[in-house]
Simulated assay, not measured.
Amino acid sequence: MTSPACIVVINWNGADDTIGCLRSLEPVRSSGCMVLVVDNGSDDGSAGRIRMACPETEVLALPLNLGYGGGCNAGCRRAEELGAKAVIFLNNDTLVDPLFAVSLLLVLSRDPTAGMVVPKILYADRPCRIWYAGGEVDLSRGMVRHTGIRRKDGPRYSQSSHTGYATGCCFAMRTRDFRAVGGFDEGFGMYAEDVDLSLRVRELGFSIDYEPSSVVWHRVSASYRGRPLKKIWLRSMGIMRLLRKHGSWTGMMLFMLLEPFRLVRGAASLAAVRVMGVLHAEARSNEEGAA
């Protein structure tokens, strides 16, 4: 895409993650993309630390935490002021392939019907495992989920395609389209605002495009380390708001009926992950001791 593009990274009390993300963006910046950090009302000195560590990066320091959607909206406004015609929203707890931005922006440049473009996203601690390879949404069933999550990466997840929704972890849009659709609905909390935005983009006649040649690695749930049940709860509340907003009453009833079971299953999965993590750490410690 020949017009300027801006990568917007949202930070809230996460300077270490953000600085790591910015380091991975250095090759991308050299290819012509601007980088903007939106500090979302941090109270731990994050903005100053980021400015000191990455003086070449502009930091937009907001006085209050506007939430993810509000931070992104503010970031896009500033990106347009800087002359950006396209914006890539990127979580601060990510690392990127040097060509990730080029691949996303090329789709927007070649296809005027593409409204949002989203990369393949892998787990940072399990880089052969998929975190996002497309999104499935069925409001009539109250179902929102990532395609391929926790599956081993392979040819099945390496085909460009249209998909149901783009994850807020990383996606690209033209700034004019983002403005036309009204940006993020700031009434959402931490979850489902990306699905809502995707549905509104689709209502304008645009597609959501999955582009696996663009690759990002995600350190999942950095914002809620140590509080995974809060993440599950907030996600449930976000989906409830999504279903109310888009008028899917059957989906809401099914979601309310099935969500308690999903919550129990999610808690069990988290417990299993913790146990495996402990066993892995112990095994590695034993190997190092034997060496």
Rank of each mutant, 00 (worst) to 15 (best):
G183Y: 03
R29A: 15
L25N: 13
D44W: 04
E211S: 02
L64T: 07
R29T: 08
S198D: 13
G164H: 12
C6L: 03
V278R: 08
Y132G: 02
V181A: 06
A291M: 12
G183T: 01
L199C: 07
D16I: 03
S285Y: 04
G247H: 06
P260H: 00
Y68V: 03
G154Y: 07
G168T: 02
A47N: 13
R29C: 06
W233A: 00
F171V: 00
A172H: 09
Y157F: 10
G14C: 08
A291L: 12
V8E: 10
A47M: 09
I19Y: 14
V278I: 09
D43N: 11
V118P: 15
A133S: 11
M276F: 05
L25A: 09
M252R: 09
D97H: 15
E288V: 02
A271I: 02
M52T: 12
G266L: 01
Y157L: 00
P127G: 00
L122D: 01
L139G: 14
V38E: 11
H280T: 01
M34W: 13
R78N: 10
G41E: 05
V201Q: 11
G20F: 03
R284N: 10
P98C: 05
Y191H: 05
L104C: 13
G20C: 04
A5W: 11
R78E: 12
A291Q: 11
D43P: 11
